[in-house]
């Protein structure tokens, strides 16, 4: 099954005005069900824009986009995805538990089922003991984990994450990476993950999508095959080879758009 399919997707902000920005052009990308795909590229290349298009938070200018085989809008209304932004974005007036419950509440899930699912998710991110706390009482990393639990609470078939670990220290970050991989494997979730960190992209992904700015486009797609991840993976030759490949793609000569499109489609 295909989780996300973009073909010929383009996004122009403020079209026809003096401050017109071509944020994305000719983006072809397919994410298969259960796949973990990272987006990496310099600031302003349109990673967040791409994620917002998939999430149907902004309308696309050209091309077609389906999520779980449906138009993006229908997928959003059906809550086919969970999303986590760079900022945790918790509601400070709700307890941790009630924050995680919110997407379930909006889906009309019953009170008891809601609580059970939210508690299960908090358990998963190791914050079961903090259910009754308010977000302001948690550290930044804990808040981020609550946001991840919230995104996962509806058991979304698709997870969209925009630099969710951006503000974390290296140790917490690595631990959360492992937790995320475990959760995704457990629930069979497909993931699009935006990051600025090359090692993070390589460690987490089945495929790393390399993007380039002005206009924002996909320049390369690098397949990563490291098998099941473990602590040893971070020291393995394959891991470092992957890092080198991605770094080259980020620096290197931009591939012709049509070639990259074919890789992307494959």
């Amino acid at each position: 099954m295909t989780a996300v399919a973009l073909s010929g997707v383009g996004k122009v902000f403020n079209a026809g005005r003096a401050d017109q920005v071509v944020a994305l052009t000719g983006v072809d990308l397919t994410v298969e069900s259960g796949q973990f795909v990272s987006l990496i590229g310099p600031s302003g290349c349109g990673k967040s824009t791409l994620l917002r298009l998939v999430a149907d938070l902004i309308p696309l200018t050209t091309g077609t986009l389906t999520v779980a085989g449906k138009p993006a809008r229908k997928a959003r209304l059906d809550q086919e995805y969970g999303i986590a932004f760079q900022q945790a974005g918790l509601f400070e007036w709700r307890t941790v538990l009630r924050n995680v419950e919110l997407p379930l509440e909006l889906r009309g899930t019953g009170r008891r089922e809601r609580k059970r699912r939210a508690e299960e998710m908090l358990e998963l991110v190791g914050l079961a003991d903090f259910a009754a706390h308010y977000p302001a009482q948690l550290s930044g990393g804990m808040q981020q984990r609550v946001a991840i639990a919230r995104a996962l609470a509806v058991h979304p078939p698709l997870l969209l994450m925009d630099e969710p670990f951006g503000a974390l220290d290296e140790m917490t970050r690595e631990r959360l990476q492992d937790e995320l991989l475990r959760i995704c494997a457990q629930t069979g979730t497909s993931t699009i993950f935006v990051t600025h960190s090359i090692p993070e992209a390589v460690y987490l992904s089945d495929r790393v999508v390399v993007m380039s700015p002005r206009p924002g486009r996909i320049t390369d797609v690098i397949e990563i095959d490291l098998g099941p991840r473990s602590e040893a993976t971070r020291q393995s030759a394959g891991f470092f080879a992957g890092i080198t490949k991605v770094r080259r793609a980020l620096r290197g000569t931009p591939a012709p758009a049509s070639a990259s499109a074919e890789v992307a489609a494959g």
């Binding site: 917002r52 959003r76 809550q79 999303i83 900022q87 974005g89 509601f91 007036w93 919110l102 909006l106």
Partner: peptide, 29 residues
């Protein structure tokens, strides 16, 4: 209104009165 809150509520397909009730009013309290 925190822009992240707005986008989140959009992603939950919540709008109008639900948004006011769950985000605007408690945030303004």
């Amino acid at each position: 209104v925190d822009p992240t809150h707005r986008e989140l509520m959009d992603s939950y397909a919540a709008s109008g009165w639900t948004f006011t009730r769950l985000v605007r009013l408690p945030g303004a309290l």
